[in-house]
Design a protein around this nucleic acid. Sequence first.
DNA 1: ACAGCTGTCTATATTGCGTATGTACAGTAA
DNA 2: TTACTGTACATACGCAATATAGACAGCTGT
Lengths: 124, 124
Amino acid sequence: MILNLTDLSDESLQTQISRQVRAQILAGDLGAGTGLPSIRALARDQKVSVITVQRAYEHLIHEGVIHARRGKGFYVSELKMKEKIDLAESRLADQIRRPVSTAKAEGLSPDDIQRIVKLILNEN
Amino acid sequence: MILNLTDLSDESLQTQISRQVRAQILAGDLGAGTGLPSIRALARDQKVSVITVQRAYEHLIHEGVIHARRGKGFYVSELKMKEKIDLAESRLADQIRRPVSTAKAEGLSPDDIQRIVKLILNEN
DNA sequence: ACAGCTGTCTATATTGCGTATGTACAGTAA
DNA sequence: TTACTGTACATACGCAATATAGACAGCTGT
């Protein structure tokens, strides 16, 4: 499990973990049924607390992308392609809705806003 | 001063205040030199603490959109049109950069992402 | 000069979240 | 049985947001 955590981020550790694991699942890097690292192992590897990994996994369970088997571990759930796309799209919409609306209220035109999105898409 | 505050939001009160005041300034509703409500008056009107309004105004001072005159009040600063646009654009970029990058990492295509932005722009 | 506004500063307190540590219990597998 | 797993507690610390209160200093109209 390759994760990139830093406590210099404005994101909390548990948010960084769930975001990065989710990305690997939705992008198809982790297929359905794949076992995830145990909370203790991941906590040890990433040098964070067990409860932090626990919270990150709980969040992903709540979203339906993984599930737990008591005494065995956490596993990637069965997700159809459409479900993956829907999840990614609704998460994106939820996260950019307020900034985009605010920018509009601040006087930016739709063209301005779409130009900025395009710039960001070309950053990487 | 028309503000719409709620403690049900995931935004802090001071963030709601600074965002809404900033929007009125950048949109041109509040011209340069316009006096803002005193922190005590606004706190009383909006039924929040003085320190909350203080923090919100401090944030806008830091951004350069308002300034304080000791013993008199807070006033909207002189801003050229280009400065207003630049501020709004850089704020937007900062706020949507991570969600957009994440969505890309999750497998959404640039077209998908721009489609969602367009949907949000048509919501209001 | 005074009263009544204003911003500024300080101190104290509460609440909730993120994070950490530790312990205990229950299920699984070699 | 041993050594893993997830689950569930209890406790604690730091920090941010928020609140309440007071004191000080600048401005302005009377």
